[in-house]
Structure formats: structure tokens, C-alpha cells
Design a protein around this nucleic acid. Structure first.
Lengths: 335, 335
DNA sequence: ATGAAAGCGCTAACAA
DNA sequence: TTGTTAGCGCTTTCAT
């Protein structure tokens, strides 16, 4: 069923059918009704390719994320996808993994598919070396690129970030204030936001003159699902004679690792070990006691991202970078 | 940059360029190289719409899932998306929510976008009333529809399921054998697979003559993230004087709810309360003790789903329904 | 208010 | 091996 068939059955030209389809008001009510009737009768829907060919847009946004099974990223995708749909856009999802080459080729693929914009979910898309970010610049040459939880200053690139530095700084300060001074920083990523978080911790510790021991920075490099491995890493640290009474984790799952460590060491929480996580994800009340965690307002970030993207696509001038503040949600793992 | 530009610059016809693009072997090495050089020089990529218009396919599969932030579904999407890409297909993701109307309209949207196939992730897409499943039949009239963890006997619909009945039956039997007879069944879904699980529990309990008390079936209807609410429900049950020493949960998060209940009641696990979850998700080692859970082999299911889909798209005859067995993974919450 | 016709960029059947 | 050409289904000027 094509526009020709409809035009024939309705006794009008294809142009008129097209006008009806696109809500032009230069059609008399009478013919409009006539055409609409035929369209409904035959359940005709226009061919998206043909339309795309002419308009060169398919109202589709490409979403890239390294690993959609990461609960935090999954949640972000969920919000983004919903809000896009509410704005009449579809989304093509690409789970790229953490490899640069794969990311770049996924990006090309999306461009090839003629997406109207690209959203990079998570800070791992921004690299240290400027050269490694070229793939983003290339893409931005074609369509707007939105960064969630990452920032990059380049034309046609828009960044929506949570103020990780301040969140982490405040959380660290709070823990110090509660009387804990030997605080371990447990992290798993050196991405854009990873660095901000770390810097927040450092700044607070330094300010209080507590940043003495290098092994207080613990980088975990295993799977984000492998809680036992995280606990193991802390157990080994303890075995080496390093003691700490607080853990600030860059991610809730790492905090759960710390919690597991505490249980295996028979430590009381929060008296012997205070723990703060990050993301305020569903994991926070999977455990006992429930996890104190930093809420970085994911839904707000996503909402703003989509609003900005819609603005850009609509031709409006939009802010290149937007920063939201996080919030420490206190639960049982801190005093 | 179009195929015409390239043909001109390379001094050949557009047909030749097209042949090079599509890897036809009816092109001499010499001209092939000539064309390829120009293509690379100008970084030309073909217009997907135009190609789609002619071929009427975009090598894209629609994925529908109710809620991509559900860890289990997120994981499934992750596997599916990866395996599709490995087969040269892209995916359009639709998070539909649990409402029938939304599901139906998402379905139409995907059809409109000319996807080559549709994958329904999760059993909540199949309804009790036959009429409510009409939207699936309609879609199957256009493209193959794949069901993950659900089954439906209809032309062009293919089902890949885990044998939930047997898994649940075996798990229940195992718990009974371990000496627990008052086993609560804690569930949150009456979907296709939800019913199978329940039936498995029932069959085992009935066989052992233990199915006496109706309130042993507890349906939880809140958010899958709200562990405290799940615990609450069990606490209320206890307050009503209903006692149980085992919980079999239809989902790992429900099992965590039971675990929380046990902690609040100061019950020893597994001595006072044995717990079995379902899905063997990352949640199983978020808690203490770690959760015994049923592994339903999600990756295998997804792999098989894609293999089947590729077969169907390739024109091969494929099995309409495939059943895999689950496996009970014993951890600390059972004897 | 309506229609005729020229693209949009590509594939594939047909000719040479 | 290569080129010519007719679609694919729609949007959008430009006439009328």
C-alpha cells in the first residue's frame, strides 16, 4: 500500500494525500476526510525510508553506552529512551564495550544510519589523550553529540554533568567530621567523572592534612558484578597491614564490596567501618545496614539532556555545559 | 557526497560504484581499486535511506522490553544487542512499560520503521486473554517475532524459554528434602513465565501434601527496586500469625526482600529461614549470606534466540519453540 | 485548493 | 566487465 494506491482510491493526487499526511492546512475539510477515510480503511502507513530519503531525517537518536547491564547506565538509558519517545523520537541503542576502536566504529555506524543526534551515556567515552577523542569531534561535525556525565568543549558537543567533585568533597568532609580520619578511596574508573570524584576526595583529605598514605587509593579493575572480588582486594590490603575505618566508594557496587569485606572481618558498621557509596542506586537497600550513598540525580540529568537536545535540533541556542549538584543520602553505613 | 559524485570522480558509472560498494565480484581489480580510492579520499558513506528504499530493509531489529532498568531485562538486552551487532544487525530499543496499549503502539512504531524482526524481551508481553495478544499476531504478519521467556503458538512467532516449571519444581523439592516444609512462595508477576514458576512450586508442594494454606502464596505488587517494601509485606504476614521457614522467590530482588525480613526478625539463615531466588543475577552476591538462586541461562537463551532469528531471516525452517533447562546454584541461604 | 512533476540516493535488471 | 535506466515511496516546488 503506497501513497499512489491511496490517491487513486480517494480520487485525488498523491500530493494531496501527502498534504493530509503531513497536516498541511491547504486541504479542504471535505477532501481531507475523504483521504483519511481511505487511509484508515486500508490501514496505510507511510514508508519511513522514502520519507527519510526526502527529508534526510528519521527522527531517531543514537544512544551509545559501554555496557547496558551496568545498573546505573541501564537506568540512564531507560530515562533517556522514555523521554525521547515522549518527544517523538526513537532510539537506536549501541552497547559498545570499553574499547576505543569499537566505540569509534559504532559511532560511524550510527552516523551512517542517519541518526539526528548521538547521546554518549557515561563518562568513559572521553579519553585522556586529545587524539583519542577525535571520533567525537568527527561525529559532532554531522550531528549534535550529547554527553551524560562527561564534558568536552567542542562545537556541537553538549555536556550534562553532575558535580562529582563537590559531591565527593562534601561526602569526604562529612565523614571526617564524623570522626573517621583514615578513609580509603575505592574506585574503578579513571574516566572524566572518575577523576572528578577522586579529586573531590583528595581535596578534602588534603585540606584536613590527612592525605599521607598512597595505598589509601585503591583501584579495582574487575567486573562491576563481582562483589566478592572487590571484598578480596580489601582483605588483601588488610593483610598487608593497612588499616582504615572509612571507605568512600566511587560506585555503589564497590561499596557493597567494602560491606562484604567488613562482614568477613567481623567489623561493626558504621562503628568500625563507615562506608559511603555513589549513585544511590537500587543496590543501596539490598544490603544490611542500608548504604549511605550520593544521589547524583540521574533522572534530572537525563531530562535536561533531552530538553537540551530537542532545543538544539529545533535550532535554538543551548548551553554547552550544564552542571547539577548531587546530594548525600544518609543511611545505616555512616554515623 | 553521493554515488553520482563518486562515479564521476572515478570515471565510471554509478552501477560500478554500487557494485564495489556491495562487494560484487563482477568488477575488475583495477576499477575496483580506482573506485575504492575515491571513496576513501572523500570519506563517502552510502545513504541508508536510499538503500533501504530499494531493498526495503535496514538490517535493523526492534527490541521491546517493559523496563530496561530491571537488571535481568537489562542483561538480556545487553546480550541480544551484542549478538545482533555481531551478525551485522542494529537494534532499535523500545522500553514500553507494562501497559498493553503502549506495547501495541510501540509495536506499530517499530513496524513503521521497517525493522526486519521484533524481539520481545520478558514474559509480560503475553496476556491471558487471547484477544490481548492480537497485537503480536498483527506484527507477526509483517516480520518474525521472537519471544524471550514467553511462548505463543502462532505463525511467524518463535519462542525461546527456560523451563521455569521444572526449575521451580526441582528447587521446591530440594528445599523440602532439606527439611523445610512450610515454604512461602513470593512472586511479583503472573506473566507466562510467572505462571510456570508458580505451577512448579505448586506441583512440588502438592506432591508432598504440603499445599494447605492459601496465604503461602504471596503476590508482591510494588516496584522491583523497593526491597524494604517487600520485607514489609512479609513482616505484615508474620504479624498476622502466618509462619514459614522457607521462602522461594520468583525473582532475586524478592529474595533480597525476604532476606531483609529475616534480618529484621533476627532470624538465622538458613536455619530459621531458607531462601531461594530466581535468575542468579548480580544481586546474589550483594547480600550476606549469598543467595541460593536458580540460573536460567540467560546468555544461552539469548544466543539461541539470535541464531534462530538469523535462521528465519535467512529463509531457513527454524524450531518454533526451544526450551532450555535451568540450574539451582546453591549458596548460603539454603542448607 | 489541487495536481503535475522533479528530485532524494541507491539497487538491480537489462543491454552492450 | 561495464553502463543505462527504471523503479523504490515520499516531499515539495511550481503551475493551475
Amino acid at each position: 500500500m503506497t501513497i499512489y494506491d491511496i490517491s487513486e482510491k480517494a480520487g485525488v493526487s498523491i500530493a494531496t494525500v501527502s498534504r493530509v499526511l503531513n497536516g498541511s492546512n491547504n486541504v479542504s475539510e471535505k477532501t481531507k476526510k475523504k483521504v483519511l477515510d481511505v487511509i484508515n480503511q486500508y490501514e496505510y502507513t507511510p514508508n519511513a525510508f522514502a520519507r527519510g530519503l526526502g527529508l534526510n531525517t528519521m527522527k531517531t537518536i543514537g544512544i551509545m553506552c559501554a555496557d547496558s547491564s551496568d545498573p546505573y547506565l541501564a537506568k540512564a538509558i531507560y530515562y533517556i529512551e522514555q523521554k525521547l519517545r515522549a518527544n517523538g523520537y526513537d532510539s537506536i541503542l549501541c552497547c559498545t564495550g570499553y574499547d576505543l576502536d569499537t566505540k569509534a566504529s559504532s559511532m560511524n555506524l550510527l552516523i551512517t544510519k542517519k541518526v539526528d543526534g548521538i547521546i554518549l551515556v557515561g563518562s568513559n567515552f572521553i579519553y585522556e589523550k586529545e587524539d583519542d577523542n577525535k571520533y567525537i569531534l568527527d561525529a559532532a561535525g554531522q550531528v549534535p553529540v550529547m554527553l551524560l556525565n562527561a564534558a568536552m568543549d567542542a562545537p556541537n558537543v553538549y555536556s550534562i554533568v553532575s558535580d562529582d567533585f563537590t559531591s565527593m568533597y562534601d561526602a569526604t568532609m562529612e565523614m571526617i567530621r564524623s570522626g573517621v580520619e583514615d578513609i580509603l578511596y575505592f574506585y574503578n574508573s579513571t574516566s572524566y567523572s572518575g577523576k572528578k570524584k577522586l579529586a573531590g576526595y583528595r581535596a578534602a583529605m588534603e585540606e584536613k592534612g590527612l592525605l599521607t598514605n598512597g595505598s589509601f587509593l585503591q583501584l579495582y579493575q574487575g567486573s562491576h558484578e563481582d562483589i566478592p572480588a572487590m571484598a578480596d582486594q580489601l582483605l588483601k590490603l588488610h593483610a598487608k597491614g593497612i588499616t582504615f575505618h572509612g571507605v568512600i566508594a566511587a560506585d555503589d557496587s564497590l561499596a557493597l564490596g567494602a560491606l562484604k569485606y567488613a562482614r568477613e572481618m567481623k567489623l561493626r558498621i558504621p562503628e568500625d567501618l563507615a562506608i559511603i557509596g555513589y549513585n544511590n542506586s537500587m543496590l543501596v537497600n539490598c544490603c544490611d545496614p542500608e548504604l549511605t550513598s550520593i544521589d547524583n540525580k540521574l533522572e534530572t540529568l537525563c531530562q535536561h539532556l533531552i530538553t537540551t537536545l530537542m532545543g538544539v535540533l529545533g535550532g535554538s541556542e543551548m548551553p554547552k555545559k550544564t552542571v547539577f549538584s548531587g546530594e548525600l543520602v544518609k543511611r545505616g553505613t555512616t554515623k
